[in-house]
Design a protein around this nucleic acid. Structure first.
Lengths: 197, 197, 197, 197
DNA sequence: TATGAATGAGTCTTCATTCAT
DNA sequence: CATGAATGAAGACTCATTCAT
C-alpha cells in the first residue's frame, strides 16, 4: 500500500541500468553500434523502448556509459598503487593481467577498438582510455629504463603495439575462436625474460 | 561534337567510378560509414545521387568495391612472385613495404580495420584480405623456418600482431599526427636483423 | 500522529489540488500547454507524476479545471446582482474591474486566449466563458440603450473588441512589460464619459 | 531521356513548396500547430512524409516560412509608399484594407494570433510582424497628430487594440461565422469621420 | 494518499533507393 | 550517361498514462 522506499527504488534502478548496459554491450559488440536499434536493445533486455530513456539520455549516452564503466572497471582491476620499480616478475604479472582482461572482456575491447576508429568519439571516452594507457606506459617505461634498454621509448611503443595487435586479432575473431592467445602470451613473456640489452 | 566512341565512354565510366570511390573512401574514413549519406558522397563528388546507382548497386556495394579495389592494389604492389627463400634483406624490404603502404594508404587501412570489427563484412572482402594475409604469412613463415627460429608459427603471429598494432595505432591518430612510424619501423627492422634464435 | 480526520484529508486534498492547478497555470502560460509535460508540472509542484492523476483524470482535464475555476472566480468577483440600470459611474467601475482582473490574472487570460484559438476547446469551457460574456454584454447593452446610443449593439461589440484587444496586447507582452494598460483604461473611461450620441 | 532542365526543376519546387505551405496553413489554423503531425500534412497534401523535408528543414521551419511569407504578402498589399500626410479618406481606405486582409486571410491571422501567444515564437516572426505593425503605427500616428488629437499615442494604441480585438473575435469564430465584421468596419469608420479632437 | 518505474503509441526526422525525364 | 524529386521504411526520442507497492 505504501510506496516503495527510496532504497528499493535505488536497487531497482541499479539493476535495470546494469541489465540495459550489459545487453547493449553484447549487441553493440556483436552487431556494431549503428546496426543496433534502441528497439533491438529493448527487445533483448525484455524491457520497453521507453525505459532506456529513463536511465540514459540517449542511445549515445548509453554507449558512453558502457565505455566509461568498462574502462573504470578494468582500471580498478589493475591496482596501480605501485611506488617502487617493476621487477621482471612484476612485468610478467602485468602482461599477464592485460591478456587476462582482454580474454575476459572480449566484447568490451571490441567495442573500444570500434570507438577508436570512429572519428567522432567523445572526448570523455578518449580521456578515460588515455588515462588508463598512460598508467601502463609509465609502468612499462620505468621498467625498460631500469633494465637498461637502449631506447626505452621505442621499446615501450613496441610492447604497446604488440599487445594492441594481439588483442585486435583476438577480438576480431568470433565468439568461439581458436586464436592462440595463451601461446602468444607465453611467447611474449619468454621474450621479455631473455632479452638483455 | 562527334558521338563518343564506345572506348571513350568506357574511359568516362572508369574515371567516374574512381572519382566516386575516392570521394567515398575519403568520407568513410574521416566520418565513418554510417555517418556518411549517399547525398554526402554525391555532393562531395559533384555528381547527382542517382549517378552513384549507375555505377554501384548500393551504398554497401560501393563500400565493398572500395575495399576490394584497395586490397587488390596493395596486393599487386607486393609482387609476390617469389619462388626461392627470403633472405634477410628481402624480409627487410618486405616489412618496409608494409609500412610504406600503411603510410600511403592511411585512409584505406582505417576503413579496413573498421570493416574487420564489423561482424557482417562480406565474405568477398574477407576472402580478399585473407588471401593477402596468407601470402604474407607464407613468406614470413618460410623465412622464420629457414632462419632456424624455434617456434616459427608464434614468431609469425607476433610479427603479424606487431605490424597490425603499429598500423592500428598509427591509423587512429588524426590526419597530421606525429606517431613515430618511421622510428618504429627502424626499430623493428633492427630487431629482426639481430635476433638469432 | 493521531489519524487525520476526514475533514483534514479534505483540506489536504483541496490544497494539493490548488497547488497543482497554480503550478500548471504558471507553466502553461509561460511555456505553452504542449511544451509542458506532466513530469514538468510534477517536478515544479514537488509532487509525483502519479499524484496528478489522483486529482485530475488527465492532463487535459487539469487544463479545463484551471479554465473553469479561473472563469468562475472572475465571474464571482464581478457580483452581477444588478437589477436596475447602469449609471455612468457604474459603467466606469465596471470597465475598471475588467482591467483589474486582466492585470491581476494575466497568466489566466493568456491561457484563455490560447484556449479560444484552439479549435477543440471543450464545450464546458466555452459555455463558462460565454455565460460570463453574456452577463457583461447584457449590462453594457442596457447601458448603451439607456444612454440613447444609436446602434447599441455595434457599440457593445466595439467596446467588447476594444477590451479584448487591449487585453490581448497586454497579455502577449512579457512578464514585466511596460504596456500602458492604466493609461488606456483612463483614456477609454474618458471617452465613454464624454460621448453623447 | 535527357534530365529535366534547371528551370523545370525550379517550377516543380516552387509549386510543391506552395502546396505544402498552403496545406499546412490550413491545418495549423484549424487544428493548431501541435495537433497537426507531419504525417497529417503529408496526407492532406497527398505527398510523402519525407518530401516535406526536401523543402523545409523541419516542421518548425515550415511554420516560420508560412508566417514569413504571409506577413510579407500582407505587407506588400499595403503599398506603404506614402510620403505625404494621410487625409481622412486615406485613413478610411487604410482601415478598410486592414479589415479586408483579415477577411481574406482569416486562417493566416488565426495562425498569427496563435504564434503571438506562444511564448517561444521565433524572433524572426516577431521582427517581421513588428515591422509591419510599425509601418501602420507611423501612418496612423501621423494622422492623429495632424488632426490635432490631444493624446495621439493613446489614440493610436486604441485604434490598434480595437482592430486587434475585432480581428481576434472574428478569427476565433469558425469558418462560416456570422460575425458582423462589415458592420463593425462601417461603425468604426463612421466614428473616425465624426470625431473631432 | 503517494511514488516513480514501466509502458507503448505516436512524433519528428533521416536516408537509401527508385524513376520520370 | 545524368538529374534530383519523390518515396517509405526505419530509427531516435517523447510523454501521457498505468500500476505495483
Amino acid at each position: 500500500m505504501s510506496p516503495r522506499t527510496e532504497k528499493q527504488f535505488e536497487i531497482i534502478r541499479k539493476e535495470k541500468k546494469e541489465l540495459i548496459m550489459e545487453t547493449a554491450l553484447e549487441l553493440f559488440a556483436t552487431e556494431g553500434y549503428h546496426n543496433v536499434s534502441v528497439s533491438d536493445i529493448a527487445e533483448a533486455a525484455k524491457i520497453s523502448k521507453g525505459l532506456m530513456y529513463n536511465y540514459f539520455g540517449s542511445k549515445e549516452e548509453l554507449l558512453l556509459s558502457i565505455a566509461h564503466t568498462g574502462i573504470t572497471d578494468v582500471t580498478k582491476a589493475f591496482d596501480f598503487n605501485k611506488d617502487g620499480i617493476l621487477t621482471r616478475q612484476e612485468l610478467t604479472l602485468f602482461i599477464h593481467m592485460i591478456f587476462k582482461t582482454v580474454k575476459t572482456n572480449k566484447k568490451f575491447w571490441r567495442l573500444y577498438f570500434m570507438l577508436f576508429l570512429q572519428p567522432d568519439v567523445s572526448e570523455i571516452v578518449k580521456a578515460d582510455f588515455l588515462a588508463f594507457q598512460d598508467r601502463i606506459y609509465q609502468i612499462a617505461y620505468s621498467y625498460f629504463l631500469e633494465q637498461g634498454y637502449e631506447d626505452p621509448e621505442s621499446e615501450l611503443l613496441m610492447l604497446s603495439a604488440l599487445i594492441d595487435g594481439v588483442a585486435f586479432q583476438f577480438v576480431i575473431t568470433g565468439e568461439y575462436s581458436n586464436y592462440p592467445l595463451n601461446r602468444l602470451e607465453e611467447y611474449i613473456l619468454k621474450k621479455y625474460s631473455m632479452d638483455k640489452k
